[in-house]
């Protein structure tokens, strides 16, 4: 199954997890990276009562041309960080789309046999813990997603991380760059033809 050519077409992404997993940061990093490469982007965070219920999500659209609706009905890609989000968004993806999923917290069950979707299973929480900071699982997933889609250059993400993590947060730049690297590696291994 071939993935969409992300460099030339509009790419609609839903990112979802629970509050504190860095869902919105993931979305912002992705937008900042694509924006720095001259693409049009929209970033629409969930801000409704569901935030208080513990889940957070954002809709990201990246396009070479003007973007009209910032809402994503059927995603080209889903990035899923926890189980509740997986249940909620598992069908919000078009056939042939890409699911990047945190398998540390999500059991896929028979998903792959019932959905015509490329699945990239990344044990992000475990891998992040190995790097010494469980909070960088989001960037690890971003690394894997970027590698799988080629939606932007790795350099742009590295730069976005430095841009976003300022002041006291700047001490986390290094571990985030490591997470980006690890995500990239994992995706490369998973995507190798078996």
């Amino acid at each position: 199954m071939s993935l969409k050519d992300s460099t030339r077409e509009v790419h609609r992404i839903i990112i979802a997890g629970f509050g504190g997993q860095g869902v919105l940061t993931l979305g912002r990093l992705l937008c900042m990276s694509a924006m720095s490469e001259g693409k049009e982007v929209t970033y629409l965070p969930s801000y409704g009562s569901e935030v208080r219920g513990g889940t957070a999500n954002c809709h990201v659209v990246i396009s070479p041309d003007q973007i009209f609706s910032p809402f994503v009905e059927k995603a080209d890609s889903l990035i899923i960080l926890n189980r509740a989000s997986f249940e909620r968004f598992r069908d919000a993806i078009r056939p042939g789309g890409l699911l990047v999923v945190n398998t540390s917290l999500v059991e896929l069950g028979d998903y792959e046999s019932t959905h015509q979707v490329t699945v990239l299973p990344v044990p992000a929480t475990e891998q992040a813990a190995e790097l010494g900071n469980v909070l960088v699982g989001n960037v690890l997933l971003l690394g894997a997603f970027r590698k799988a889609t080629g939606i932007c250059c790795r350099k742009s993400v590295e730069q976005a991380i430095r841009q976003l993590l300022t002041g006291r947060k700047s001490r986390d730049i290094e571990v985030n760059q490591k997470a980006l690297e690890r995500g990239t590696q994992l995706a490369a291994e998973l995507l190798q033809p078996k």
Binding site: V41, T42, Y43, L44, P45, I67
Partner: peptide, 10 residues
């Protein structure tokens, strides 16, 4: 409205 207030764009 909340959508255009919350969303981010260049």
């Amino acid at each position: 409205d909340g959508m255009v207030g919350q969303m981010m764009e260049p």
